[in-house]
Design a binder for these strands. Sequence first.
DNA 1: CGCATTGTTGAGAGCTGTCAAACAGCGTGG
DNA 2: CCACGCTGTTTGACAGCTCTCAACAATGCG
Lengths: 237, 237
Amino acid sequence: MRARLYCERCAVRQTSLCSEVSDEAARELVPIAHHRRIPAGQVIQSDHQGLGWLAIIVSGVVKLVKAQKDGRLQIVGLQYPADFVGHPYLSKNSLVAEATTPLELCCFSRTAFENIMRSHPSLEQALYRRALSDLETAREWMFLLGRKTAREKVASLLISMATRVAPPPACGKAAELPSRFELPLSRIEIADALGLTLETVSREFRHLKDAGVISTAGRRSINILSPAMLHTLAASD
Amino acid sequence: MRARLYCERCAVRQTSLCSEVSDEAARELVPIAHHRRIPAGQVIQSDHQGLGWLAIIVSGVVKLVKAQKDGRLQIVGLQYPADFVGHPYLSKNSLVAEATTPLELCCFSRTAFENIMRSHPSLEQALYRRALSDLETAREWMFLLGRKTAREKVASLLISMATRVAPPPACGKAAELPSRFELPLSRIEIADALGLTLETVSREFRHLKDAGVISTAGRRSINILSPAMLHTLAASD
DNA sequence: CGCATTGTTGAGAGCTGTCAAACAGCGTGG
DNA sequence: CCACGCTGTTTGACAGCTCTCAACAATGCG
């Protein structure tokens, strides 16, 4: 009953997995859910450990990192509030999931979650749809990594982060870009996501500022002065 | 009965989706399957049309291409024999699927397939697992696109294609690279897959030949002279 | 308020892209 | 069977973008 009430106030109730499954499945998830806070920078999943649970992000951002022994690394996914972290039927992928900001998670034990999944097709289907959505996102990102210039990459990421970090899209239609938002990533993390170096990222930020497209305040605050120009620079079709 | 016999001789029976679902589901798929041959270069799916069916690749290779109006394009996926093409619950993604070689497909009408899926969780689960596998592949490719050099990209793709185009991995363990195989892609397609230009691809081929790692015969025949060196150059961890 | 961390700026080098021309493979038709 | 031409590939010269290395500045913590 306590948990139930908690769900009622959940910030991502309308947009997370919970809204996509049958009422019955949702009811079964409530007792196995537990809320958890995690500080920025903490690894929450890796091939070595931490695979015991799955989670819905309530607030904060998670990066999925693929690394090589030689030190090179690439961020291959960013998960925002309402996104799901971890996969049932775990694959032995060499991914590390890490909090880039403080997190609020709604966690489920892997085994308990998989049990519910087996008896509720709507849950499995919802996860399947999310996997397809992640796949589409990954492929969009492949285009960015393979074919966009540094300038386009930075502009594209700013748009992507601005739309995802912003409060839920209310009701209407395509979300407008907020005029101001907080970067969930450091410069190095931005570089790791875009396949660039932090110096190049810094130079493109400068260019955007000189062009009057954005302004910055502190290290993580971005003002979008010209959303139209930003979209043009992103060259996303 | 005819179709059933046909399935028995299917080249990808042991490795495709069919081997991952319940006998019951497999039996229901037989009557709605139809075999189809497609010439190289033909578009088999796009946002505009061709979404009426899904398919298992029996032989040949399919490229998934993401394109922008300005002419830039990036291959975001390669599907080999036993792979599945198309997604139920279609997303309106801007992907084009095209045959890079002549194809043999085992096709299913989308609606009929989705009906069977609804009554057979094992089918949905098998598709889900394949989506997760595609996602893992896409993320591996993101690392390649973002962080590898042209030389490493070409070596990595050669290894990937050599292992996937080769006859099924028999039984044993990790597949050895074949000493000779046919490229399923043109130079331009290789460039489109790696986020390079065809000139750079051509230069890296020359380097590999000069280094004695491979030799070529005609436009599409590759001999792998030194698998060990190729793996080193690929720098895949 | 001092210091460590993170981010910015500059100079130069290297890798990959662009443009251009020559070449080779492959199908067609004489 | 060979000449021809189209397409695809190779090679070269050069430019440009991004990386590397290095110094400096700003931010934010103790």
